[in-house]
């Protein structure tokens, strides 16, 4: 490297955007992830602790119909996806699949697509 490395112009990294979303999602997943999985994946389907109709259509429409419920869903789902996408992107690099356009498209493109679908579904449910 030597002089080459010293004189090479530095390009600013755009990572702060993705790192910020990764951190926010990681924090939410760490704080609320286990209980959310327990509620939606185990307790509600089995009627264990919670009422068997806890996630009934009426309940869920009321929840996502409220702006607070909407905000919660719009924070949780997209940020989980951005968190996971960023981590998987780096893990691909770790196992030798280097940061190509395809990896970027799958990881961040997937998270972006998920975000748009969440927004669309929440708008469809209405206020």
């Amino acid at each position: 490297m030597g002089d080459d490395a010293m004189s090479r112009p530095l390009k600013r990294s755009n990572a702060p955007i993705f790192w910020g979303l990764f951190g926010a999602g990681g924090m939410l997943a760490a704080l609320l992830g286990p209980m959310l999985v327990f509620i939606t994946g185990i307790a509600a389907p089995l009627g264990f602790i919670l009422a068997p109709d806890a996630m009934s259509y009426a309940n869920m429409m009321a929840f996502t119909g409220h702006w607070l419920g909407k905000a919660f869903v719009f924070a949780i789902v997209p940020l989980f996806l951005w968190h996971a996408g960023h981590r998987v992107f780096h893990s691909l690099h770790d196992v030798g699949i280097h940061a190509g356009m395809v990896a970027r498209l799958v990881c961040y493109g997937g998270a972006l697509l998920g975000t748009l679908i969440v927004a669309w579904a929440l708008l469809l449910i209405g206020f």
Binding site: L10, K11, R12, S13, A15, P16, W19, H90, D94
Partner: peptide
């Protein structure tokens, strides 16, 4: 900061 924030900088750290 130019080096810290560059593609060679801190964001390579996982």
């Amino acid at each position: 900061m130019e080096l810290v924030a560059a593609e060679e900088g801190v964001f390579n750290c996982t």
